[in-house]
Each structure stands twice: as C-alpha cells, then as structure tokens.
Design a binder for these strands. Structure first.
Length: 820
DNA sequence: GACCTGCTGCGGTATG
C-alpha cells in the first residue's frame, strides 16, 4: 500500500495509526517531533483545528511507546499545563484514543483542584507518565519536599494557550515555576502551544531556559474567514450598546445555520440577548447561555450539550473564548463591536475547524460609531494586524509567593535562587537588591513588620539556606496559592444608614469625595470608603458628575482607534457604509466638520443652560475617563465651573457653566496635565489602597483562606487597610508598597496612551464654536439623559430621548462655522 | 477597569 511520504517519517506504529484514521500527518506536527527529538524547545503557532494538541504530545507518545510498563518510576515524563481545568480533562480524554488504539503502555492523569485527595496522594507516590495540570497546581507540586525526585526525570513540558497567560501575574508565576523545572530537570524541553500572536518572539522567550535552542514553528494558516456586518432593516440606532434591535435578525441566522456561537461583551448583555432570543423562539430551538455568573454545573451542562451537538446556539461572554474545540459551529456572531482584532480572530476561530473551509462570522454594531469600528476590526482581522501590548514588568508580589513555595519544598539558597529566577524572561532584569528585599520580606516581613511573629516565615537551616519556619507556614502557603484575587463588591450606604445596594469596587476607585453619581434612583454625593462600604450623602438636585453604567465597555485598542479615524478622514472608505451612517456623517460635515487623524477636533456649544465641550480623542474609554477627571479639575481652576463629564471610547464630553476660549482650551489640554494633577489624583483616590490589597494577598501578607474558614472579603480589606497605613507611616519604602505603585502604574497603562495623545495634539487643536449640538455629538449626549443603563428598556428609551437631540442636530441652518 | 481563569494535606477517627 502506498504510504504518504510525510506519514512514513513516523514510527511504523504511528504511521499505521494515522493511516487507519485516514489522516495525513501535518508538516508542523512532524516539525515539532523532529525539533523535540533533537532536544530543542519549541513554540508552535497554529490555528485551531490544525491538530495542535496532538503535535504537542506526539514527541512524548513516540518516546514513551517503548516504555517498560513494569518499570518503577518516581517521576513523570511529560507535564502538560493549561489555563483551564476543563481543558486538562478534555485533553486527557483526547489522549486516551491514540494511547488505546495503538496499545501504548502510557499512563496519563489530570491533577487539579478537582482531583480527589486519595488520587493526589497516589500520584505523589506513583506518578503517571503524563500529568495534565494548571499553573496553580504546578506551584503546589513544586512546594512538596519530593519535588526534586518527582521532576528529575522530566523530559517535556507542554504549555497550552501560552499567549493567553504570557503577560499576566498568573503567567509570571508559571514562568517562575518553569525556571524551577528547568533547574530540577536540565534535560527538559519546553513546548508552547499558541494561537496567532503579534509578537511570537516575545511569547517564545517564556520557553527559553538554559542554553537550549528554541524554534518557532508555524502551522499552515486556515482559509481566510468570511466576515460580514449585520444591519437589520438597513437601520442603525444612534446610540445604545445592547444591540437588542438585532435580536430578530440574529434569531433568523440561528435558524438558517446548524450551530451558532453568539458572543457578547458583558454578562448583562448575554442575559438580555438570550432572553430576547427565547421570547422569539416559536420553533423551540435549543439555545443555551454561558457566562461567569452562572453556576458551574449549569455551564458544564451547556458545554456537554454543545459537545453532543444538541444545541443550535449558545450566547456567551469570553467564558467560551478558550477551551474545548467544537467542530460543528458554522457561524459566529459577535454582538457589539469586538474592540480589538485579536479578540475578533480568536472568537471567529471557534467556528468550523476544518482548515480549508472559511469560518463564517457576522458582526452586529449596536450604534453608528460601532459600525465604523466593526469595519475597522474586519479590515484589521483580514490583514492579520493583531493587537500588540507592551510586556508586563516583573511583579514582586508574585516573586514573594514563589520564594515561599520553594521554601516549603526545602532549603533555599538566595544566591542560587536569584540566578534561577532571572532565567525567567519576565524577571531577567530584576536587580539583586530588589530580589534581596523581597526575600527579606518573605523571611520576616521587613523592617516595620519584623516585630510580629506571624510574618517570620523562614528559618535558617544548618546548610545556610532558608526554609519554611513551620508546618503552619506551609499550610498557609498551600491554602493561598495562586495570583487570582477576587474583586469585591462594595455596599453603598447613606451615611451610617442601611445599604442601598452594591457596586463594583472599580467604579469607586476613581471617585473623589464630593463627586456625585446616580445609584438606586437617587443622586448621591461620594463621601469616602469605610471598610467595605461606600459612604454617601444625598446630593442636591442636578446632574451626576460621573454617570454609572451597568457593566462597562472594553476599551478600544489603539490600532482600531487609528483605523476608525482613518475611515472618518477618507470619504472613499465611507462609501460602503450603511446609508444611515453615511447620512449621519454627511450631516456632521454640513453642521460642523469630521475629525481628522492629525488634529484634535473640539466642539463647543450651548444646550439648556449649560456649555458643552466635546473632544473627539478616540483614545478609549479608560483614557477618556482619566482625562475627564483631570480636565474638570483644571476647568475648576480656570473658573469655568464644570458640572460633569462623560467618556465613551470615542469622545470625552464635559459640561460647565462657562465656555472656554480657544486659548483656554489649549491651556486645558497642555501636556503637563499628567504631572502634579495626576499624582494628586492618585493619592486622593483609593486606587493605591486597593492595589495594595491585591499585592498583599498574592505576596502572602494576608490570608484569603484559613483552615476551616474562608476569610470574608471584609476581613481581608480591613486587614489590608490597617497594614497599608502602618507601612505608609513607618516604612514608606517597604517592598510591597513599591510593588503596589508598580501595579497601579501598570493598571493605569492608558495614562501612557494619554501622554502620547497630549503630545501629539499640542498646537493642533481645532475648536469649533457652534450654536447647537452636532450629529456626531448626539450619541454621547443621549447617554447623559440616562443614568442607569443595563435594563432592557434602556436602548429603546435612549432612542426616544435621542429624538429631540437628533432633530436639533439635523434641522435648520448649517452651524456657525466661525472658529473661535 | 470589560471578561475570564484556580484553589491544603495531615493526622485523627469511623467504617467496610
């Protein structure tokens, strides 16, 4: 029988198996096999559906095919790490097939938090050849005293979905673990599996240990996806975000296709779209819902039904971005703009895993701005122009946790450990001095906390190294392992009275005492945070300074923003836009002008008895939010009496009693805005305090869980606040405060973006003085009338509220074009 | 910041 050339390069048993399945071995699978056989580490970049996981395991299966089943082992051969528990289970199941069908003498098992006690015990004494686990469970394995034995014979580590964790604290903890493995098992090769990324070399660095050569291997690209924009009834709403107008059209698409995956951006939106579909569901189609607030059992049920092919559609948040591949999805619908090209491609890639057939996807813009954004996202996706993020600097809280981990396993020598830690790419530039300060913190808490016994966590061994002081410390470490810290909800209270409800912590972070916002139907004045409560007073009537939006929006990526600006500037690019949108832009040109790429357009007009200022910055909501905080402070000082602001991904709008002159505007937007003003704001807001809590939990200063009890979030916050105040007072340069400031700076990454923006627009600001609201400003002003978005009638209400604004913006004489 | 993601081991006693 003729054997395909490529397949004949496999060992006979494997070649026969491939043939029996009617498969041809892929080039990249063979390339990975050869590279790993030659002792090289590998980053494999391939789209889903290309047999990526099998490629990862092939070298191990081939090596282990001749293993002696009776051989007494103390360690494992291959370690597989995935960011999801569910994925380890799925991959284990998929591994069973080749192992069983070829009759290979290979044991493979999962090890996660779900693994029963007795099995974990057995695994420690009798390790399987292949162990599938998570980053957290790997950390636990490394904290056992038998870890050196357990990993001494390790040959291969496979890290799945590497790109998804590369630049997170979770990923940093993992890479520190990998650095440890490389030291325990110098012969070990590292094999990363990844979707397409903008900077493969940077992702590959996380696999780079010792002098082992590293290859980047690329699988063949799948067929170019077919992506369309859905405009039901040729109508696009002026504003709103839920896109409920499109639910009937989405329902029709579901009916027309075999299986549809409907992605949305927030949980609230998932609920609304799901309900909307269900109401229309006269055909009784099996439609499911999947997001993070649903009970785990509920989600597993949906996933299982999906795997069986029993569902026609699932409405999901990013809870289904990663995970099990379902072969039968023939349509992906993205409701609302995708906000970034990488996310869009990832989601489209969830459909149709036959490489040669194009994936089909539809984008559903919720409003007119989103049409521009969807168009930009499609262009970027087709050009494979992926989002690139700056690498995250090393996190010292993660390092502290890792040091404690190793001290649980055995005696730790700081000199050797420093060398080991700096082999991890994220920590390569860590100065010895900072390492020593972190080490000292793990040892005894550092100068200000030295007096307390509970933070003396290491004791010196006869060999000079350091080890966990006692079993309590070890248990504390194991119970608090990991970098994922839950973000608490805060109760909103009127004075000392009863709670009005709960609000997410992040919303309060940016507030300053005196700021007003709408909550539970009342206008509240923010007074401060006491323990877990947002203390407020009733505000005098007026409009809220900071509107509350139920569920936020993803910030627009820089790249997409740039593309949106390009579309606005170039008339030819506007020709294939829906008529609604073209008309909207035409009216804007007539009334005012369209923003351009090289200049900042600011419109100024009166409405009611207020003066509005609308800046078309296109820097994303987070950056605009910060800009709004800083700008209104400056307006205050300039005597303009600002009343409030609202930020969207595209514009920042402020309203005040006074209108600034052109000269004043230039001064308001001066570059020095990010200096003292920002510092002052940071100190005043509770941002640093909150960051400290996360850092303190990860670094092990505060326990999350304790034998027999789960610490309440209230206790955690209370303790963190207490220690924060002590440290600020007695040891302001404590290493954890240092880590806190680094964290805050990273979380304010958009400040960098803001800085670039301010620099770019200096001397290039066009202020248009107009007599009324302009068409482009309508969407953002519409949202002002509403204070509590999120319920389902809201989009309709918005549209209604828009009516008179639209009338005002689009009727009468052309606007006054006089420049100020 | 949207949205996600994960998570003792021991020494004791009772039971089959």
């Amino acid at each position: 029988m003729d054997q395909p050339i490529a397949t004949s390069l496999l060992p006979p048993r494997f070649a026969a198996w491939f043939q029996g399945r009617g498969w041809q071995v892929h080039d990249h699978q063979l390339a990975v096999l050869r590279a790993v056989e030659a002792g090289r580490s590998v980053l494999l970049i391939a789209p889903t559906g290309g047999g990526k996981t099998l490629a990862g395991f092939l070298p191990s299966l081939v090596e282990l095919a001749d293993a002696d089943p009776k051989e007494k082992r103390t360690g494992i051969h291959t370690l597989y790490i995935s960011p999801l528990k569910a994925l380890t289970v799925d991959v284990a199941r998929n591994l069973e097939t080749p192992i069983a069908e070829m009759g290979l003498p290979i044991e493979s098992e999962t090890r996660t938090g779900d693994t029963p006690q007795n099995r974990r015990q057995r695994q420690r004494k009798h390790p399987p050849h292949i162990l599938l686990t998570t980053p957290e469970s790997l950390a636990l394995l490394l904290s056992y005293s038998e870890a050196p034995d357990y990993f001494a014979s390790l040959k291969t580590v496979i890290i799945d979905e590497l790109y998804a964790i590369a630049d997170t604290k979770r990923g940093q903890l993992l890479t520190l673990g990998l650095a440890r493995l490389a030291r325990l098992a110098p012969q070990c090769r590292f094999l990363g599996l990844s979707a397409t990324v903008a900077a493969p070399e940077r992702v590959a660095q996380h696999l780079n240990y010792g002098a082992r050569p590293l290859d980047i291997i690329r699988g063949r690209d799948g067929a170019q996806p077919e992506i369309g924009i859905m405009i039901p009834d040729a109508h696009v709403p002026w504003s709103g975000r839920m896109a409920l107008h499109a639910v009937p059209a989405i329902y029709e698409e579901i009916k027309r296709h075999k299986t549809t995956l409907v992605f949305v951006n927030t949980r609230a939106q998932a609920e609304l779209v799901f309900q909307g579909l269900w109401r229309l569901n006269d055909d009784n189609l099996a439609i499911g819902l999947h997001h993070g607030s649903l009970a785990v059992e509920q989600r597993r049920k949906i996933e299982a039904a999906m795997a069986r092919g029993a569902l026609r559609a699932v409405v999901a948040t990013s809870s289904l971005d990663l995970g099990i591949d379902w072969g039968d999805i023939d349509l992906v619908i993205q409701v609302g703009a995708p906000k970034g090209a990488s996310r869009l491609l990832q989601r489209i890639g969830r459909a149709n895993h036959r490489l040669d057939e194009p994936s089909r996807a539809l984008l559903v813009p919720a409003n007119r701005f989103e049409v521009l954004e969807c168009k930009a996202a499609i262009e970027a996706a087709l050009e494979k122009d992926l989002d690139e993020y700056p690498p995250r600097p090393y996190c010292l809280d993660v390092l502290a946790q890792h040091i404690l981990c190793l001290a649980c396993a055995g005696s730790v020598n700081p000199d050797a450990l420093y060398l080991e830690v700096t082999t991890a790419a994220s920590y390569a530039s860590l100065p010895r001095e900072e390492f020593d300060r972190v080490f000292a913190f793990v040892r005894d808490g550092g100068y200000a906390l030295k007096a307390y016994d509970r933070w003396k966590r290491l004791r010196q061994m006869p060999d000079g190294g350091w080890r966990a002081a006692n079993m309590t410390v070890v248990r504390q470490y194991r119970m608090n392992v990991g970098t994922i810290v839950e973000s608490p909800m805060l109760k909103v209270r009127l004075g000392r009275g009863q709670a009005l409800g709960e609000v997410e912590e992040w919303f309060v972070q940016g507030l300053l005492p005196g700021d007003t916002f709408m909550f539970a139907g009342r206008l509240l004045r923010f007074e401060g945070i006491r323990e877990m409560s947002v203390v407020c007073s009733l505000a005098k009537s007026g409009e809220p300074k900071v509107p509350v939006y139920g569920g936020g929006r993803l910030p627009l990526t820089t790249d997409l923003a740039e593309r949106v600006r390009a579309i606005l500037e170039d008339r030819r690019q506007q020709r294939d836009l829906p008529d609604d949108v073209q008309e909207w832009l035409r009216l804007q040109r007539w009334r005012s002008v369209l923003p351009t790429r090289s200049r900042l357009l600011i419109e100024s007009f009166p409405r009611g008895n207020k003066e509005f200022l609308v800046a078309y910055c296109f820097e994303g909501r987070i950056a605009h939010q910060t800009l709004g905080m800083l700008l209104t402070r400056r307006m205050e000082r300039a005597g303009l009496k600002p009343l409030g602001f609202v930020a969207t991904d595209y514009v920042l709008a402020t309203w005040a009693l006074g209108a600034p002159t052109q000269e004043q505007v230039e001064r308001l937007f001066a570059e020095d805005m990010l200096g003292d003003d920002l510092e002052e704001w940071l100190e005043d807001s509770s941002m640093l305090r909150r960051s400290f809590r996360n850092v303190a939990v990860i670094a092990g200063l505060i326990e999350r869980r304790h034998p027999g009890e789960e610490k309440s979030r209230r206790q955690i916050t209370f303790n963190a606040d207490l220690i924060y105040d002590v440290l600020r007072k007695h040891e302001p340069d404590h290493i954890l405060l240092h880590a806190t400031r680094q964290d805050a700076a990273w979380n304010l990454a958009d400040v960098q973006r803001l800085g670039d923006f301010l620099k770019r627009v200096q001397g290039r600001i066009d202020v248009r003085r107009l007599d009324r609201v302009t068409p482009l400003a309508v969407p953002v002003l519409v949202t002002l009338g509403s204070t509590e978005v999120g319920n389902e009638a809201m989009d309709a209400l918005l549209e209604e509220a828009a009516a008179d604004l639209i009338e005002e913006a689009t009727s009468g004489e052309p606007g006054q074009e006089a420049m100020l």
